[in-house]
């Protein structure tokens, strides 16, 4: 439990997620990655905890795709999805744990 949380915290602070190098991405890769990122961002929105960085990565993904750079578009979409997943994790983790910081 605490290991996964500190891993998350480090990821949160470092911000960037290193993408594994892989073969050139296609438009189909981009579309799949973008759809996944969009849906994670929408879920974070329902939880009232979107991260600005997830939203900007989503925008950067779309812009790269429009410029025909599907490598970058796919990487940005994946980064955005990771960030939104961390936001969702954070929301769930805080459901009870917010009380730990309370002045009492």
């Amino acid at each position: 439990m605490s290991r996964s949380i500190s891993a998350l915290a480090v990821a949160l602070l470092l911000g960037g997620f290193v993408m594994p190098a892989h073969a050139a991405s296609t438009e189909a890769d981009y579309k799949a990655a973008y759809a996944a990122a969009e849906s994670a961002n929408a879920e974070a929105g329902k939880l009232r905890n979107q991260w600005t960085t997830a939203v900007s990565a989503l925008k950067a993904s779309k812009a790269a795709a429009e410029a025909g750079d599907f490598d970058k578009a796919t990487a940005e979409a994946k980064k955005s999805e990771q960030l939104s997943k961390a936001a969702i994790f954070q929301t769930n983790e805080q459901k009870e744990n917010w009380k730990l910081m309370e002045i009492r």
């Binding site: 915290a9 949160l12 602070l13 911000g15 905890n49 991260w51 600005t52 960085t53 960030l83 961390a86 936001a87 954070q90 929301t91 805080q94 917010w98 009380k99 910081m101 309370e102 002045i103």
Partner: peptide, 22 residues
């Protein structure tokens, strides 16, 4: 409102209290 004040959010993982209480 109290829950909102103490809940960590955003990529920096801060609550209002991180800055304005701690």
């Amino acid at each position: 409102g109290k829950r909102y004040f103490y809940t960590r959010r955003g990529q920096l993982n801060f609550s209002c209290a991180t800055c304005h209480v701690q």
